[in-house]
């Protein structure tokens, strides 16, 4: 026994790299990866081809002659109805919607989460429960009452109205995210700050906020992708001039007028997907954390 353990390393033998099981495993993973990569690949190659080349046929073939014209046209010239100023308008609309929505929704939700974690009051848990249940209610049941509310305060069709809608519908998941994070901060720290004479806002800004930076990054990732990708609220609560990028994209691609320019369409689609894709590839693991937290948003 002892002799053997001297000769052979203890523990299980490292499995051979090319065992039959491993070949099947990696083979399957590679084939599946192709299914996931295919649409991205097709979008890219199509957007770099000219229309004659596309009419020749194979969506999967790489471009013979690379052209960036479809990208330029998608950005600056693509038509929705009579407007032919491209996706750039939708892009800037989306940016104008995105920034205040992200800031406002995170500001409110982080304060909510903080209050729920450390300043519980009678009924606070009830409101929180309603908020969480609200995340599961189909948006369709709340769409029209919100139209009325926005009309009452004069923000229907206005970007500010859409910002409010994003803040409201982002609130359940973000509040949950922040509440869970702030609950994980030791209560003694909060108590120490109270003994030191810090109040509600003092503790929030001086103690909690500096400790919560990672969760703010998660929340920003969650909100940027979520709000950028929104279609439903954009189509309902804005006017054509203020349509966000997703709505404008759909109108460009699915427009029934004129000849279909598939390369321009794919360039436009890629342009719209670019912002969340960039965030996805930069943020890496934090994105996974963000979507795992935001998954209930559905």
């Amino acid at each position: 026994m002892t002799d053997q353990s001297v000769i052979e390393p203890s523990g299980s033998k490292p499995s051979k790299r090319f065992s039959r099981g491993n070949i099947i495993l990696y083979g399957t993973l590679i084939v599946v990866s192709m299914y996931y990569l295919l649409p991205l690949y097709v979008m890219i190659v199509t957007s770099l081809k000219g229309m004659p080349e596309i009419r020749l046929g194979n969506v999967f073939a790489p471009p013979i002659e690379i052209t960036f014209e479809p990208w330029v046209r998608a950005w600056a010239e693509a038509c929705t109805g009579i407007n032919c100023d491209g996706l750039s308008r939708g892009f800037w609309n989306s940016v104008n919607i995105l920034i205040p929505s992200v800031v406002l929704s995170i500001a409110i939700a982080s304060v909510n989460g903080y209050a729920l974690a450390h300043w519980k009051f009678k009924g606070s848990e009830t409101f929180f429960t309603i908020l969480i249940i609200g995340a599961f209610i189909p948006y369709q049941t709340m769409l029209y009452p919100i139209v009325i509310l926005l009309r009452e305060i004069g923000l229907m069709g206005d970007l500010a109205g859409l910002v409010l809608v994003h803040t409201v519908f982002g609130m359940p998941i973000l509040t949950l995210l922040f509440r869970n994070y702030f609950t994980s901060i030791p209560e003694e720290l909060f108590k120490a700050a109270r003994v030191d004479g810090a109040g509600f806002w003092g503790i929030y800004f001086r103690i909690m906020l500096p400790m919560a930076l990672p969760i703010f990054v998660v929340a920003i990732i969650l909100q940027v992708t979520g709000i950028w990708n929104d279609f439903l609220f954009g189509v309902i609560y804005t006017k054509p001039e203020t349509y966000p990028m997703t709505v404008q994209l759909n109108n460009i691609v699915n427009s029934v007028q004129g000849v279909k320019e598939y390369n321009v369409n794919m360039a436009a689609t890629l342009l719209t997907g670019l912002v969340p894709l960039i965030i996805y590839f930069i943020s890496g693991k934090l994105f996974v954390r963000g979507i795992a937290a935001g998954a209930v948003k559905g």
Partner: peptide, 16 residues
């Protein structure tokens, strides 16, 4: 708490 004339030390230190 801050007006009571007390100082407090916690188990987990609770340092900022």
């Amino acid at each position: 708490p801050s007006d009571r004339g007390i100082g407090m030390v916690f188990q987990s230190y609770a340092l900022y």
